[in-house]
Design a protein around this nucleic acid. Structure first.
Lengths: 190, 190
DNA sequence: TTCATTATTGAACACTGGTCAATAAAATTA
DNA sequence: TAATTTTATTGACCAGTGTTCAATAATGAA
């Protein structure tokens, strides 16, 4: 009826993203419909399209900021100066998995989603994160590692996270397995 | 108009699955609609529901057959009696990756799908295939492996396939990397 | 021939993502 | 202040989705 809301309750990207994040995490990408998001925001679903080109871009903008936390996790491990290099290596592997499984929806979007609409938005993100990871591994390894070995380590961690993302298992449920997987990978590089 | 087809062109589960597989592989799970499948079969979309409870179950019955092909690949490696155990181990790893990357859509459908409806049906298929895999690894490993180690090997292979599935890389393009990944995993278990 | 059974149809339902003319609030200009 | 432009919102609309089901015709059995 009223084609525009009064100033104090106009929509903002932040408000949309905040509601969308809750719904995406609660219901997944496809089940969280634009109409449900709009209902929660008490606006029409058309209004969201004024702020975001489409659903994929809304999802992407939501996740982009959160994903920078992975870099922060890696940095914080490197700064734990009390640990030995092998402890740090273990920590990086372990906490990479922890990150992936406690931010499953984000991880899925960055690394797993096949939706063509969404994929066109994703390119630099994962690559940048990997470079950071590779750098850290290389500086901590006890012997000189080939690029291929580091890549194998990454893919092996990725496989762990991917598998448990698919079945929506929490990190808590598999932390022992995560620990032994990290240990398994250390065996391969020392 | 005609509520039932004459005998010689009645629908069969096999005919539906065959058409559905093509479409699932070509367009993915969600884009391959029941109506498109029905159009290709030249029947109404309602008719499919006489043979399958719903789309997810049609998908599941299709994928179950695919898993058996993976089992056959593993079996054929075990029967290559000229090879040493380590060569067989390498072959299993390498050909697992080869299978995944030369049947990317199948692999994706088998292991990566996130649709909730489908997931409730997918449990035994992958599990049975994994048991087969684990058995083979265990019998070939030079030292006694823990269940967790075998699981780590599997997840590490899965990570490789998953990654290159997402970017639609062919096996040919990464066969050297596949080889070194397989070698990397052997290092971890011997 | 009669009568169940069986397989198929297509309309209907409740959804989905996305578009767009109409419109009113807000910001800008005269 | 008044007129005008810009901006944000609405909701009808479109083409599509999975699923259900009464109606119905081909089939097979009695």
């Amino acid at each position: 009826m009223s084609p525009r809301k009064s100033a104090h309750d106009e929509l903002t990207k932040e408000a949309i993203i905040s509601v969308a994040r809750d719904l995406f995490v609660k219901e997944g990408y496809s089940a969280a419909s634009m109409r449900k998001i709009a209902d929660t925001l008490q606006c029409s679903h058309g209004a969201i399209y004024y702020h975001f080109k489409n659903k994929a871009q809304l999802f992407y903008e939501m996740v982009e900021a959160d994903f920078q936390k992975l870099d922060q996790v890696l940095d914080s491990v490197l700064e734990e100066s009390a640990d030995t290099n092998e402890q740090k290596l273990f920590s990086i592997f372990y906490r990479y998995i922890q990150f992936g499984l406690t931010h499953q929806k984000h991880y899925e979007l960055m690394f797993l989603i096949r939706d063509d609409d969404v994929k066109s938005y994703l390119n630099e993100g994962p690559n940048k994160s990997y470079m950071h990871f590779a750098q850290a591994i290389n500086s901590l390894a006890p012997r000189s590692l080939s690029i291929k070995d580091i890549w194998s380590v990454f893919l092996s961690l990725h496989g762990f996270v991917t598998h448990y993302c698919r079945s929506e298992t929490t990190f808590e449920e598999v932390k022992e397995l995560a620990s032994s997987h990290a240990q398994f990978l250390i065996k391969a590089i020392i």
